[in-house]
Design a protein around this nucleic acid. Structure first.
Length: 412
RNA sequence: CGGGGAGUAGCGCAGUUGGCUAGCGCGCUUGCUUUGGGAGCAAGAGGUCGAGAGUUCAAAUCUCUCCUCCCCGACCA
């Protein structure tokens, strides 16, 4: 991608009315744009990050045998009445009447819808187990939005639902999800805190929460420095002793063993080998995809800007010719661009005729992991610099060996 | 919903004891010079001062009502 032809508006100054670092940087780096409180557009650069995170999730979900589908955001309220969640989730639901005076809502989550699908198509133990997932926009009329994309009214979520004939099967599926979650978050460059938690409005019994320590967290945990034991910080449950450390954290994922709560209220049953009818045993598994991006920024930045983890960076490499007007520099820049693109990398070439300072600062701000700097000064000795965003480390390379060196550095 | 802060050009802000044609920086347009950490000179474009009502000879500035955004509390991915 050539920057001069791209849509990448960066902001020099911190936008007014922002406090969270991730909120500021996601706006300044041209990732997102606010329409109204809690409702954001993903601009091209942010959209790229979103796609990368989604693809990691897809790969890990597919790897454990889940199948992707897409359910509607627009839902009749009637289906919610069957589980009573038209009442219990009323506060967060966007609901309204359509022209036929039917009560409708924008889906805050999809247990009811997926269970309805299972009821229609999963009739026999032969159809089990099966796990379905989607990556989709959820709507919740939050009591209070917060920190830009962290707590939004419209946000992107991965939600998976497992269907089993018995609890043993559910436990297997649950464990598969647990392992997949660890891989997903690791690939996104996040160190997670995993705690067993109350299942709240979801119902069911066992659940695990995936949190990441961050100053903007809305939750907190107690970590025992000696034993490694982790407890959720909940009212009146403060553990005693100096070995306990409290950390503020933000929840990115939550998985639940639901059991039969939804299958029973919606009549999702199957026939076993003996021909007897049984409720399907369910689990559900969520990841806040858009929130995850905010969390990544929150824990991967410095005063100059974002520092993207390799796998979810919007581009792999940025090429920065210091003097865009210099034919030799631009010629080399284009050559590297070709070579690296052919090697399968996403490359951003800052071909703008701007001052060096602005280009360097923008590069730091948008945080591409690796930067190739082409300037007359170094070129006089036939040399080019490669700079790592993460630690600022600069490697001086022969101008003829740049692409090889980039590929080597990226493979580390 | 309760408490606190804030709305003036695309962005960041000043101006607010009522008083000239509403200003500054950045960005944007044109030209020339520049280009290793947010360049210089010159000439430009861009405003219902959040909205409505009121007080007044006169309102960005005073009064009332409303709207929006941000932060703190209960909820959640």
């Amino acid at each position: 991608m050539y920057w001069s032809k791209y849509f990448l508006p960066t902001l020099k100054e911190v936008p007014a009315g922002t406090e969270a670092i991730s909120h500021q940087l996601s706006l300044r780096a041209g990732l997102v744009n606010m329409l109204t409180s809690g409702v954001y557009s993903y601009l091209p650069l942010g959209h790229r990050v979103l796609r990368r995170v989604e693809n990691i999730i897809r790969q890990e979900m597919d790897a454990i045998g889940c199948h992707e589908l897409l359910m509607p955001a627009l839902q009749p309220i009637d289906i919610w009445k069957k589980t009573g969640r038209d009442v219990t989730m009323k506060e967060v639901m966007f609901s309204f009447d359509n022209k036929k005076a039917q009560r409708m809502c924008l889906g805050p989550t999809h247990e009811e819808i997926i269970t309805d699908i299972a009821k229609q198509f999963v009739k026999s133990y032969r159809h089990l187990p099966v796990t379905l997932y989607q990556i989709q926009t959820k709507f919740r009329d939050e009591i209070r939005t917060r920190f830009g994309i962290v707590r939004a009214c419209e946000f992107i979520m991965k939600d998976a639902y497992s269907f089993d004939r018995d609890w043993e099967g559910l436990k297997k599926n649950y464990d598969l999800q647990l392992q997949a979650y660890h891989k997903i978050f690791k690939r996104c460059g996040l160190d997670m805190i995993v705690v067993t938690a109350d299942s709240g409005a979801m119902g069911g019994s066992v659940s695990h929460e995936f949190l990441v320590a961050a100053p903007i967290g809305e939750d907190a945990v107690w970590i025992n420095k000696d034993s490694g034991q982790i407890l959720k910080d909940e009212e009146g449950k403060t553990p005693q002793g100096s070995e306990w450390e409290r950390k503020v954290a933000i929840e990115l994922g939550h998985i639940f063993q639901l059991g039969t709560k939804y299958s029973e209220s919606l009549g999702a049953v199957y026939l076993d080998e003996n021909g007897s009818q049984k409720p399907i045993i369910m689990g559900c598994y969520g990841i806040g995809v858009s929130r995850l991006i905010a969390a990544v920024i929150e824990v991967n930045n410095d005063p100059a800007g974002i520092i993207w983890p390799k796998e979810i960076a919007p581009f792999d490499v940025e090429i920065l010719p210091v003097q865009a007007g210099d034919g030799v520099s631009m010629g080399l820049a284009q050559k590297y661009y070709q070579e690296l693109a052919q090697a399968g990398l996403d490359v951003l070439l800052d071909d703008r005729d701007e001052s060096a300072g602005r280009k360097f600062n923008d590069a730091d701000l948008i945080g591409i992991p690796l930067r190739i700097i082409i300037g007359k000064r170094m070129l006089a000795q036939n040399q080019v610099e490669i700079k790592l965003r993460r630690n600022g480390q600069v490697t001086v390379v022969d101008a003829n060996k740049v692409s090889q060196e980039v590929l080597r550095l990226l493979s580390l």
